[in-house]
Nucleic acid binder design. Structure first.
Lengths: 210, 210
DNA sequence: GGCAACGTGTGACAAATGTCACGGGAGGTC
DNA sequence: GACCTCCCGTGACATTTGTCACACGTTGCC
Protein backbone atom coordinates (compact mmCIF):
# COMPACT_ATOMS: atom_id res chain seq x y z
CA UNK A 1 0.00 0.00 0.00
CA UNK A 2 2.96 2.38 -0.12
CA UNK A 3 2.74 3.71 -3.62
CA UNK A 4 5.26 6.42 -4.35
CA UNK A 5 3.62 8.16 -7.30
CA UNK A 6 1.54 10.49 -5.17
CA UNK A 7 2.63 13.49 -3.13
CA UNK A 8 3.20 12.94 0.55
CA UNK A 9 0.04 13.45 2.55
CA UNK A 10 -2.26 13.33 -0.45
CA UNK A 11 -5.84 12.63 0.62
CA UNK A 12 -7.29 9.59 -1.16
CA UNK A 13 -10.95 10.27 -1.85
CA UNK A 14 -13.90 8.14 -2.93
CA UNK A 15 -16.91 9.90 -4.49
CA UNK A 16 -20.37 8.37 -4.77
CA UNK A 17 -23.20 10.23 -6.48
CA UNK A 18 -25.82 8.78 -8.75
CA UNK A 19 -25.81 11.79 -11.04
CA UNK A 20 -22.85 11.23 -13.28
CA UNK A 21 -22.67 14.85 -14.30
CA UNK A 22 -22.39 15.94 -10.69
CA UNK A 23 -19.88 13.29 -9.80
CA UNK A 24 -17.71 14.17 -12.74
CA UNK A 25 -17.94 17.83 -11.91
CA UNK A 26 -16.98 17.18 -8.30
CA UNK A 27 -14.02 15.16 -9.48
CA UNK A 28 -12.95 18.08 -11.65
CA UNK A 29 -13.45 20.51 -8.78
CA UNK A 30 -11.51 18.46 -6.26
CA UNK A 31 -8.94 17.40 -8.81
CA UNK A 32 -7.80 21.02 -8.85
CA UNK A 33 -6.62 20.62 -5.26
CA UNK A 34 -3.00 19.47 -5.14
CA UNK A 35 -3.44 17.48 -1.94
CA UNK A 36 -6.59 15.57 -2.93
CA UNK A 37 -6.65 12.53 -5.17
CA UNK A 38 -9.91 10.95 -6.31
CA UNK A 39 -9.26 7.21 -6.28
CA UNK A 40 -12.75 5.93 -7.03
CA UNK A 41 -16.20 6.98 -8.10
CA UNK A 42 -19.51 5.17 -8.34
CA UNK A 43 -23.21 5.84 -8.70
CA UNK A 44 -24.71 3.75 -5.90
CA UNK A 45 -24.27 3.06 -2.21
CA UNK A 46 -23.68 -0.67 -2.41
CA UNK A 47 -20.76 -0.35 -4.81
CA UNK A 48 -19.42 2.56 -2.81
CA UNK A 49 -19.22 0.41 0.32
CA UNK A 50 -17.56 -2.39 -1.62
CA UNK A 51 -15.01 -0.09 -3.24
CA UNK A 52 -14.23 1.47 0.12
CA UNK A 53 -13.43 -1.95 1.58
CA UNK A 54 -11.07 -2.68 -1.30
CA UNK A 55 -9.37 0.66 -1.75
CA UNK A 56 -9.40 2.01 1.82
CA UNK A 57 -9.68 5.68 0.84
CA UNK A 58 -8.94 8.31 3.46
CA UNK A 59 -12.27 10.04 2.97
CA UNK A 60 -15.55 8.97 1.37
CA UNK A 61 -17.81 11.66 -0.07
CA UNK A 62 -21.28 10.13 -0.30
CA UNK A 63 -24.44 11.60 -1.72
CA UNK A 64 -27.39 10.91 0.56
CA UNK A 65 -29.89 10.07 -2.18
CA UNK A 66 -28.60 7.06 -4.06
CA UNK A 67 -30.05 3.80 -5.36
CA UNK A 68 -29.35 0.39 -3.80
CA UNK A 69 -28.16 1.90 -0.51
CA UNK A 70 -28.47 5.52 0.56
CA UNK A 71 -25.49 7.49 1.80
CA UNK A 72 -26.05 6.64 5.45
CA UNK A 73 -26.47 2.93 4.83
CA UNK A 74 -23.29 2.99 2.80
CA UNK A 75 -21.57 4.90 5.59
CA UNK A 76 -22.63 2.28 8.13
CA UNK A 77 -21.23 -0.52 6.00
CA UNK A 78 -18.00 1.38 5.46
CA UNK A 79 -17.65 2.12 9.17
CA UNK A 80 -18.20 -1.53 9.97
CA UNK A 81 -15.64 -2.77 7.46
CA UNK A 82 -12.96 -0.09 7.56
CA UNK A 83 -12.05 0.97 11.09
CA UNK A 84 -11.17 4.63 11.23
CA UNK A 85 -12.86 5.43 7.93
CA UNK A 86 -14.03 9.00 7.49
CA UNK A 87 -17.29 9.71 5.70
CA UNK A 88 -18.82 12.97 4.50
CA UNK A 89 -22.51 13.00 3.56
CA UNK A 90 -23.63 15.44 0.90
CA UNK A 91 -27.33 16.09 0.55
CA UNK A 92 -29.81 18.17 -1.33
CA UNK A 93 -32.59 18.10 1.26
CA UNK A 94 -30.99 18.73 4.62
CA UNK A 95 -33.68 17.39 6.93
CA UNK A 96 -32.92 17.52 10.66
CA UNK A 97 -33.72 13.86 11.30
CA UNK A 98 -31.32 12.81 8.60
CA UNK A 99 -28.51 14.59 10.41
CA UNK A 100 -29.42 12.59 13.50
CA UNK A 101 -29.24 9.35 11.54
CA UNK A 102 -25.93 10.42 10.05
CA UNK A 103 -24.42 11.30 13.38
CA UNK A 104 -25.64 8.03 14.85
CA UNK A 105 -23.73 6.33 12.02
CA UNK A 106 -20.56 8.19 13.14
CA UNK A 107 -20.37 10.22 9.98
CA UNK A 108 -17.60 12.83 10.18
CA UNK A 109 -18.99 15.46 7.84
CA UNK A 110 -22.42 16.66 6.76
CA UNK A 111 -22.79 19.32 4.07
CA UNK A 112 -25.74 20.44 1.96
CA UNK A 113 -25.43 20.98 -1.75
CA UNK A 114 -26.03 24.65 -1.13
CA UNK A 115 -22.52 24.89 0.31
CA UNK A 116 -20.17 27.12 -1.71
CA UNK A 117 -18.02 24.90 -3.87
CA UNK A 118 -14.85 26.50 -2.60
CA UNK A 119 -15.54 25.25 0.92
CA UNK A 120 -15.73 21.60 0.08
CA UNK A 121 -12.01 20.97 -0.21
CA UNK A 122 -11.49 22.55 3.21
CA UNK A 123 -14.13 20.32 4.71
CA UNK A 124 -12.43 17.29 3.22
CA UNK A 125 -9.10 18.38 4.64
CA UNK A 126 -10.62 18.97 8.07
CA UNK A 127 -12.25 15.58 8.05
CA UNK A 128 -9.11 13.87 6.82
CA UNK A 129 -7.26 15.53 9.69
CA UNK A 130 -9.64 13.91 12.14
CA UNK A 131 -11.94 16.83 12.71
CA UNK A 132 -15.66 16.83 12.10
CA UNK A 133 -17.62 19.31 10.07
CA UNK A 134 -21.38 19.78 10.37
CA UNK A 135 -23.07 22.48 8.35
CA UNK A 136 -24.06 25.12 10.92
CA UNK A 137 -27.46 25.83 9.37
CA UNK A 138 -28.49 22.21 9.52
CA UNK A 139 -27.04 21.78 12.98
CA UNK A 140 -29.07 24.73 14.24
CA UNK A 141 -32.22 23.42 12.59
CA UNK A 142 -31.64 20.01 14.12
CA UNK A 143 -31.13 21.49 17.58
CA UNK A 144 -34.41 23.38 17.57
CA UNK A 145 -36.22 20.54 15.83
CA UNK A 146 -38.86 18.77 17.85
CA UNK A 147 -38.16 15.27 19.01
CA UNK A 148 -40.18 12.71 17.10
CA UNK A 149 -43.40 12.10 19.05
CA UNK A 150 -44.43 9.08 16.99
CA UNK A 151 -44.33 5.42 17.88
CA UNK A 152 -42.66 2.84 15.67
CA UNK A 153 -45.91 1.65 14.17
CA UNK A 154 -47.09 5.16 13.52
CA UNK A 155 -43.88 5.74 11.61
CA UNK A 156 -44.49 2.51 9.70
CA UNK A 157 -47.92 3.55 8.51
CA UNK A 158 -46.65 6.98 7.55
CA UNK A 159 -43.87 5.38 5.57
CA UNK A 160 -46.39 3.17 3.81
CA UNK A 161 -48.60 6.20 3.24
CA UNK A 162 -45.97 7.68 0.95
CA UNK A 163 -46.21 4.77 -1.47
CA UNK A 164 -49.72 3.38 -1.01
CA UNK A 165 -52.77 5.24 -2.19
CA UNK A 166 -55.52 3.84 0.03
CA UNK A 167 -55.82 2.81 3.65
CA UNK A 168 -56.60 -0.68 2.43
CA UNK A 169 -53.32 -0.81 0.55
CA UNK A 170 -51.41 0.34 3.62
CA UNK A 171 -53.17 -2.29 5.72
CA UNK A 172 -52.30 -4.99 3.19
CA UNK A 173 -48.68 -3.91 3.06
CA UNK A 174 -48.32 -4.02 6.84
CA UNK A 175 -50.62 -7.02 7.42
CA UNK A 176 -52.92 -4.96 9.61
CA UNK A 177 -56.63 -4.35 9.62
CA UNK A 178 -57.85 -1.13 8.07
CA UNK A 179 -59.23 -0.03 11.43
CA UNK A 180 -55.83 -0.29 13.06
CA UNK A 181 -54.21 1.63 10.26
CA UNK A 182 -56.76 4.36 10.54
CA UNK A 183 -56.23 4.58 14.26
CA UNK A 184 -52.46 4.94 13.81
CA UNK A 185 -52.95 7.51 11.11
CA UNK A 186 -55.39 9.43 13.24
CA UNK A 187 -52.98 9.40 16.16
CA UNK A 188 -50.09 10.52 13.97
CA UNK A 189 -52.16 13.27 12.38
CA UNK A 190 -53.20 14.56 15.77
CA UNK A 191 -49.63 14.55 17.06
CA UNK A 192 -48.36 16.35 13.98
CA UNK A 193 -51.31 18.72 13.59
CA UNK A 194 -51.92 17.50 10.06
CA UNK A 195 -55.34 17.45 8.44
CA UNK A 196 -54.82 14.28 6.42
CA UNK A 197 -52.37 11.42 6.24
CA UNK A 198 -50.49 12.82 3.27
CA UNK A 199 -49.74 16.01 5.14
CA UNK A 200 -48.68 13.98 8.14
CA UNK A 201 -46.40 11.79 6.04
CA UNK A 202 -44.96 14.86 4.35
CA UNK A 203 -44.29 16.51 7.69
CA UNK A 204 -42.61 13.41 9.08
CA UNK A 205 -40.53 13.18 5.91
CA UNK A 206 -39.47 16.82 6.15
CA UNK A 207 -38.33 16.20 9.70
CA UNK A 208 -36.41 13.18 8.53
CA UNK A 209 -38.31 10.79 10.75
CA UNK A 210 -39.18 8.37 7.98
CA UNK B 1 -17.73 43.85 -26.84
CA UNK B 2 -14.40 42.92 -28.46
CA UNK B 3 -12.25 42.08 -25.47
CA UNK B 4 -8.87 40.78 -26.41
CA UNK B 5 -7.93 38.87 -23.25
CA UNK B 6 -9.66 35.67 -24.32
CA UNK B 7 -8.63 33.20 -27.02
CA UNK B 8 -10.32 33.53 -30.37
CA UNK B 9 -13.56 31.57 -30.53
CA UNK B 10 -13.80 31.12 -26.79
CA UNK B 11 -17.37 30.19 -25.78
CA UNK B 12 -18.78 32.59 -23.19
CA UNK B 13 -20.97 30.57 -20.81
CA UNK B 14 -23.53 31.45 -18.17
CA UNK B 15 -24.34 28.82 -15.54
CA UNK B 16 -27.47 28.85 -13.37
CA UNK B 17 -28.02 26.22 -10.70
CA UNK B 18 -29.48 26.74 -7.27
CA UNK B 19 -27.12 24.26 -5.65
CA UNK B 20 -23.93 26.22 -5.15
CA UNK B 21 -21.84 23.12 -4.80
CA UNK B 22 -23.00 21.83 -8.16
CA UNK B 23 -22.59 25.16 -9.88
CA UNK B 24 -19.09 25.56 -8.55
CA UNK B 25 -18.23 22.03 -9.57
CA UNK B 26 -19.57 22.59 -13.07
CA UNK B 27 -17.52 25.75 -13.31
CA UNK B 28 -14.45 23.77 -12.33
CA UNK B 29 -15.28 21.04 -14.82
CA UNK B 30 -15.88 23.40 -17.71
CA UNK B 31 -13.06 25.69 -16.71
CA UNK B 32 -10.74 22.85 -17.66
CA UNK B 33 -11.78 23.28 -21.29
CA UNK B 34 -9.54 25.78 -23.08
CA UNK B 35 -12.29 27.04 -25.36
CA UNK B 36 -14.95 27.64 -22.71
CA UNK B 37 -15.08 30.64 -20.42
CA UNK B 38 -17.63 30.89 -17.62
CA UNK B 39 -18.67 34.53 -17.55
CA UNK B 40 -21.47 34.37 -14.98
CA UNK B 41 -23.15 32.16 -12.44
CA UNK B 42 -26.29 32.51 -10.37
CA UNK B 43 -28.68 30.47 -8.28
CA UNK B 44 -32.07 31.43 -9.68
CA UNK B 45 -33.85 31.82 -12.97
CA UNK B 46 -34.80 35.47 -12.67
CA UNK B 47 -31.23 36.61 -12.12
CA UNK B 48 -30.04 34.28 -14.86
CA UNK B 49 -32.32 35.97 -17.38
CA UNK B 50 -31.21 39.37 -16.23
CA UNK B 51 -27.52 38.51 -16.41
CA UNK B 52 -27.99 37.02 -19.86
CA UNK B 53 -29.49 40.27 -21.10
CA UNK B 54 -26.54 42.22 -19.75
CA UNK B 55 -23.67 39.92 -20.62
CA UNK B 56 -24.95 38.28 -23.82
CA UNK B 57 -23.19 34.95 -23.25
CA UNK B 58 -22.90 32.55 -26.17
CA UNK B 59 -24.49 29.70 -24.28
CA UNK B 60 -26.63 29.53 -21.10
CA UNK B 61 -26.56 26.35 -19.06
CA UNK B 62 -29.71 26.38 -16.93
CA UNK B 63 -30.82 23.94 -14.29
CA UNK B 64 -34.50 23.12 -14.67
CA UNK B 65 -35.38 23.19 -10.98
CA UNK B 66 -34.64 26.66 -9.65
CA UNK B 67 -36.40 29.19 -7.45
CA UNK B 68 -38.03 32.38 -8.74
CA UNK B 69 -38.15 31.11 -12.34
CA UNK B 70 -37.48 27.59 -13.50
CA UNK B 71 -35.05 26.84 -16.31
CA UNK B 72 -37.65 26.97 -19.04
CA UNK B 73 -39.14 30.25 -17.87
CA UNK B 74 -35.67 31.70 -17.75
CA UNK B 75 -35.00 30.33 -21.22
CA UNK B 76 -38.13 32.00 -22.56
CA UNK B 77 -37.11 35.35 -21.13
CA UNK B 78 -33.63 34.99 -22.51
CA UNK B 79 -34.92 34.02 -25.95
CA UNK B 80 -37.22 37.02 -25.93
CA UNK B 81 -34.50 39.46 -24.94
CA UNK B 82 -31.43 38.09 -26.68
CA UNK B 83 -32.07 37.10 -30.29
CA UNK B 84 -30.03 34.09 -31.27
CA UNK B 85 -29.33 33.08 -27.69
CA UNK B 86 -28.54 29.41 -27.13
CA UNK B 87 -29.84 27.67 -24.03
CA UNK B 88 -29.11 24.23 -22.61
CA UNK B 89 -31.44 22.84 -19.95
CA UNK B 90 -29.99 20.46 -17.39
CA UNK B 91 -32.38 18.44 -15.29
CA UNK B 92 -32.49 15.75 -12.66
CA UNK B 93 -35.96 14.39 -13.45
CA UNK B 94 -36.18 14.08 -17.19
CA UNK B 95 -39.94 13.99 -17.67
CA UNK B 96 -41.21 13.76 -21.24
CA UNK B 97 -43.57 16.72 -21.04
CA UNK B 98 -40.78 18.92 -19.79
CA UNK B 99 -38.86 18.21 -22.94
CA UNK B 100 -41.90 19.32 -24.92
CA UNK B 101 -42.05 22.55 -22.96
CA UNK B 102 -38.35 23.08 -23.47
CA UNK B 103 -38.53 22.51 -27.20
CA UNK B 104 -41.50 24.84 -27.44
CA UNK B 105 -39.29 27.46 -25.81
CA UNK B 106 -36.70 26.92 -28.57
CA UNK B 107 -34.15 25.48 -26.20
CA UNK B 108 -31.10 24.20 -28.07
CA UNK B 109 -29.92 21.52 -25.67
CA UNK B 110 -31.52 19.17 -23.15
CA UNK B 111 -29.39 16.92 -20.97
CA UNK B 112 -30.16 14.97 -17.80
CA UNK B 113 -27.81 15.01 -14.84
CA UNK B 114 -27.11 11.37 -15.51
CA UNK B 115 -25.06 12.40 -18.52
CA UNK B 116 -21.35 11.54 -18.24
CA UNK B 117 -19.48 14.66 -17.20
CA UNK B 118 -17.08 14.32 -20.08
CA UNK B 119 -19.86 14.79 -22.61
CA UNK B 120 -21.07 18.13 -21.36
CA UNK B 121 -18.33 20.22 -22.92
CA UNK B 122 -19.01 18.62 -26.29
CA UNK B 123 -22.69 19.42 -25.99
CA UNK B 124 -21.85 23.01 -25.21
CA UNK B 125 -19.58 23.20 -28.24
CA UNK B 126 -22.24 21.68 -30.49
CA UNK B 127 -24.83 24.12 -29.24
CA UNK B 128 -22.49 27.07 -29.57
CA UNK B 129 -21.86 25.98 -33.15
CA UNK B 130 -25.57 26.23 -33.88
CA UNK B 131 -26.45 22.55 -33.55
CA UNK B 132 -28.99 21.14 -31.13
CA UNK B 133 -28.47 18.34 -28.68
CA UNK B 134 -31.31 16.35 -27.12
CA UNK B 135 -30.52 13.45 -24.85
CA UNK B 136 -31.52 10.36 -26.85
CA UNK B 137 -33.07 8.53 -23.88
CA UNK B 138 -35.39 11.39 -23.06
CA UNK B 139 -36.19 11.96 -26.69
CA UNK B 140 -37.23 8.34 -27.07
CA UNK B 141 -39.33 8.48 -23.92
CA UNK B 142 -41.01 11.65 -25.12
CA UNK B 143 -41.81 10.12 -28.48
CA UNK B 144 -43.60 7.13 -27.02
CA UNK B 145 -45.24 9.24 -24.30
CA UNK B 146 -48.96 9.72 -24.50
CA UNK B 147 -50.34 13.10 -25.47
CA UNK B 148 -51.86 14.96 -22.54
CA UNK B 149 -55.60 14.21 -22.49
CA UNK B 150 -56.43 16.85 -19.90
CA UNK B 151 -58.08 20.22 -20.33
CA UNK B 152 -56.55 23.44 -19.02
CA UNK B 153 -58.77 23.54 -15.96
CA UNK B 154 -58.13 19.91 -15.19
CA UNK B 155 -54.43 20.71 -15.23
CA UNK B 156 -55.08 23.68 -12.95
CA UNK B 157 -56.81 21.61 -10.31
CA UNK B 158 -54.13 18.95 -10.49
CA UNK B 159 -51.48 21.60 -10.02
CA UNK B 160 -53.35 22.92 -7.01
CA UNK B 161 -53.74 19.38 -5.72
CA UNK B 162 -49.99 19.13 -5.25
CA UNK B 163 -49.96 21.98 -2.73
CA UNK B 164 -53.45 21.99 -1.21
CA UNK B 165 -54.62 19.31 1.14
CA UNK B 166 -58.40 19.41 0.75
CA UNK B 167 -60.82 19.94 -2.10
CA UNK B 168 -62.05 23.01 -0.27
CA UNK B 169 -58.55 24.46 -0.30
CA UNK B 170 -58.19 23.81 -4.01
CA UNK B 171 -61.55 25.44 -4.65
CA UNK B 172 -60.54 28.48 -2.61
CA UNK B 173 -57.23 28.77 -4.45
CA UNK B 174 -58.91 28.67 -7.86
CA UNK B 175 -62.06 30.58 -6.89
CA UNK B 176 -64.26 27.66 -7.85
CA UNK B 177 -66.99 25.79 -6.06
CA UNK B 178 -66.04 22.51 -4.43
CA UNK B 179 -68.42 20.68 -6.73
CA UNK B 180 -66.68 21.96 -9.82
CA UNK B 181 -63.31 21.02 -8.45
CA UNK B 182 -64.52 17.53 -7.68
CA UNK B 183 -65.89 17.20 -11.19
CA UNK B 184 -62.57 18.19 -12.73
CA UNK B 185 -60.70 15.91 -10.42
CA UNK B 186 -63.04 13.05 -11.20
CA UNK B 187 -62.60 13.63 -14.93
CA UNK B 188 -58.84 13.82 -14.61
CA UNK B 189 -58.70 10.70 -12.49
CA UNK B 190 -60.80 8.79 -15.01
CA UNK B 191 -58.63 9.94 -17.91
CA UNK B 192 -55.44 9.01 -16.11
CA UNK B 193 -56.73 5.82 -14.54
CA UNK B 194 -55.87 7.07 -11.06
CA UNK B 195 -57.77 6.06 -7.96
CA UNK B 196 -57.43 9.39 -6.16
CA UNK B 197 -56.43 12.92 -6.93
CA UNK B 198 -52.95 12.57 -5.48
CA UNK B 199 -52.17 9.70 -7.80
CA UNK B 200 -53.58 11.66 -10.69
CA UNK B 201 -51.48 14.71 -9.82
CA UNK B 202 -48.41 12.54 -9.42
CA UNK B 203 -49.00 10.92 -12.80
CA UNK B 204 -49.48 14.25 -14.51
CA UNK B 205 -46.33 15.51 -12.85
CA UNK B 206 -44.31 12.49 -13.95
CA UNK B 207 -45.44 13.10 -17.48
CA UNK B 208 -44.41 16.72 -17.16
CA UNK B 209 -47.88 18.04 -17.84
CA UNK B 210 -48.04 20.28 -14.81
C1' DG C 1 -77.62 27.43 -37.54
C1' DG C 2 -76.16 23.07 -35.46
C1' DC C 3 -72.82 20.63 -32.98
C1' DA C 4 -69.00 19.55 -30.09
C1' DA C 5 -65.91 20.73 -26.49
C1' DC C 6 -65.02 23.34 -22.60
C1' DG C 7 -65.92 25.87 -18.25
C1' DT C 8 -68.94 26.24 -14.45
C1' DG C 9 -72.30 24.86 -11.45
C1' DT C 10 -75.99 21.86 -8.54
C1' DG C 11 -77.85 17.82 -6.26
C1' DA C 12 -77.73 13.09 -4.82
C1' DC C 13 -75.47 8.99 -3.69
C1' DA C 14 -71.72 5.65 -2.38
C1' DA C 15 -67.24 4.87 -0.82
C1' DA C 16 -63.21 6.25 1.64
C1' DT C 17 -61.40 8.62 5.38
C1' DG C 18 -60.86 10.55 9.97
C1' DT C 19 -62.51 10.57 14.94
C1' DC C 20 -63.81 8.59 19.08
C1' DA C 21 -64.67 5.21 22.56
C1' DC C 22 -63.59 1.06 23.92
C1' DG C 23 -61.60 -3.42 24.36
C1' DG C 24 -57.45 -7.01 25.24
C1' DG C 25 -52.59 -8.50 25.37
C1' DA C 26 -47.42 -7.83 25.70
C1' DG C 27 -43.70 -5.58 27.69
C1' DG C 28 -41.61 -2.70 30.64
C1' DT C 29 -41.04 0.12 35.57
C1' DC C 30 -41.93 1.32 40.32
C1' DG D 1 -48.91 -6.56 41.95
C1' DA D 2 -50.12 -2.04 40.04
C1' DC D 3 -49.32 0.95 36.47
C1' DC D 4 -47.89 2.62 32.11
C1' DT D 5 -47.09 2.57 27.13
C1' DC D 6 -47.37 0.39 22.99
C1' DC D 7 -49.55 -2.85 19.75
C1' DC D 8 -53.77 -4.59 17.60
C1' DG D 9 -58.37 -4.73 16.98
C1' DT D 10 -63.79 -3.52 16.67
C1' DG D 11 -67.74 -0.64 16.10
C1' DA D 12 -70.17 3.68 15.39
C1' DC D 13 -70.28 8.13 13.64
C1' DA D 14 -69.33 12.52 10.90
C1' DT D 15 -66.79 14.36 7.23
C1' DT D 16 -64.50 14.19 2.95
C1' DT D 17 -64.02 12.45 -1.39
C1' DG D 18 -65.27 10.39 -5.76
C1' DT D 19 -69.11 9.35 -9.15
C1' DC D 20 -72.94 10.37 -11.84
C1' DA D 21 -76.65 12.87 -14.06
C1' DC D 22 -77.89 17.06 -15.44
C1' DA D 23 -78.01 22.06 -16.50
C1' DC D 24 -76.42 26.59 -18.70
C1' DG D 25 -73.38 29.66 -21.20
C1' DT D 26 -69.40 30.34 -24.30
C1' DT D 27 -66.45 29.42 -28.12
C1' DG D 28 -65.07 27.50 -32.32
C1' DC D 29 -65.86 24.66 -36.33
C1' DC D 30 -68.45 22.66 -40.26
Amino acid sequence: MSESEQPTGSIRLLIADDEHLIRGALEALLGLEPDIEVVAGTDNGATAAQLALELRPDVCLLDLEMPRADGIEAAERIMAGVPGARVIIVTRHARPGVLRRALAAKVAGFVPKSTPAGDLADVIRDVAAGKRYIDPEIAAAALVAERCPLTDRELDVLRATRTSSSVQAIADALFLSTGTVRNYLSAAMTKLGASNRHDAAEHAWQQGWI
